[in-house]
Computed example of a mutant assay.
Amino acid sequence: MKNYIIKRVLGLIPVIILVSIFSFFIIQAAPGDPMDNYSKPGMTQEQLQNIRESYGLDGNIAEQYFRWAGHVIHGDLGISVKNKRPVTEIIGERLPATLILMGTAFAISLIFAIPLGLWAGLKKNKMADNIIGFLTYVGISIPPFWLSMVLIIIFSLKLQILPSSGMYSVGIQSTADLIKHLILPSIVLSLNNMAVFTRYIRSNTISQLEEDYVLTAMSKGTSKTKILFRHVLKNCLLPIITLAGINLAGLVCGSFVVESVFAWPGIGRMAMDAANGRDYPLIMGYTMFSCLILILGNLLADILYAVADPRIRQEVKR
């Protein structure tokens, strides 16, 4: 297993380098000059040149990339144009809010998807399966922006029982107030994952119920409920491990749309503001952070999959 992990980590290094190159060149190819964010009317050419040198904007694009990469290796993602603060500091401040929101949404997805998927698989092609299937298609199809606006109109404007934006109310920093603000955005974010997870669990439940070990347990008189939760559930959750690893970047780095609609002070909203303000260092910092989280998520998923499935562990040892 140790050699497997080392091999996987070494294989991820070229991926990180390629992502950084493409991201840097794409951002630099965007219309406009980054110096527009730093220069002011009346500046002399000498002052402009000093600013270029201080922000690493002098030289050709290759020289700028290698200069930037050298700083990144040492943990320096640059200074935000808008906030005049280190990018790592800004991301660190926004990360907890996003982790709270995305972690809650992920937990809600699993809590509802596991029983729904198992029940749909157990009742294959029956009314319960058809109803759950219809609901999952709706969950996958509904645009998060539209659903966010509908929930705000119903629960915030009409019923006035839930807040429409922010993480806390003004002057209140309680856990109860945080939970109230979490409800609407977490429901919107959990819906799509819940629908996808339910479909995967249903599909795997159907295939597992046809396996010999299930038929043997049923012939011995074991109840379907016990078979479902003691044996089938473990095998059904294996694909969810992979999906969780793939979605880890989204869970950690936030949702542009939902965080913007609900004014949630997370990384997704930060990235949207950075893109609108053409804050190049912050955009690159967010891009590299997202890339790193996605890669680590896939690595973690591979490791957990190998731990959960003995067959994969045997292949790793070979």
Rank of each mutant, 00 (worst) to 15 (best):
K2D: 12
Y4H: 06
I5D: 07
I5S: 05
R8K: 13
V9Y: 09
L12Y: 07
F22G: 02
S23F: 11
F25T: 06
I26Q: 07
Q28L: 10
A29N: 08
G32S: 11
P34N: 06
Y38C: 03
G42K: 02
Q45F: 10
E46Q: 05
E46K: 01
Q49R: 05
Q49S: 13
I51P: 01
N60R: 00
E63S: 10
E63Y: 02
Y65N: 04
R67A: 14
A69Y: 05
V72N: 08
V72W: 09
I73K: 08
G75F: 09
I79M: 13
V81E: 14
P86D: 07
E93M: 00
R94M: 07
L95P: 00
P96D: 03
I108V: 15
S109P: 05
L110W: 09
L118Q: 01
W119E: 05
W119P: 00
L122Q: 07
K123F: 07
N125Y: 11
D129I: 00
N130E: 07
I131K: 01
I132Q: 00
Y137E: 13
V138Q: 06
P143F: 06
M149S: 15
M149R: 08
V150W: 10
I152G: 11
I153R: 14
K158V: 09
Q160T: 12
S164H: 11
Y168M: 00
G171W: 07
G171I: 01
I172S: 13
A176F: 11
K180R: 08
L182C: 01
L182H: 01
V188Y: 07
N192T: 12
R202T: 00
T205H: 01
I206C: 02
I206E: 03
L209M: 14
E211F: 05
S223E: 12
K224P: 00
K226A: 11
L228G: 02
K234F: 11
C236D: 07
C236P: 03
L237C: 09
I240K: 02
I241P: 03
A244M: 14
L248T: 03
L248N: 06
A249N: 09
G254H: 06
F256A: 14
F256Q: 13
V258F: 11
E259R: 04
F262V: 02
F262K: 01
A263Y: 04
G266W: 01
I267R: 02
R269G: 15
M270W: 05
D273F: 10
G277T: 10
M288I: 14
F289A: 14
F289G: 10
S290V: 11
C291H: 04
L292F: 15
L292E: 11
L294I: 06
N298I: 03
A301M: 04
L304Y: 02
A306C: 13
I312D: 11
V316W: 03
R318S: 14
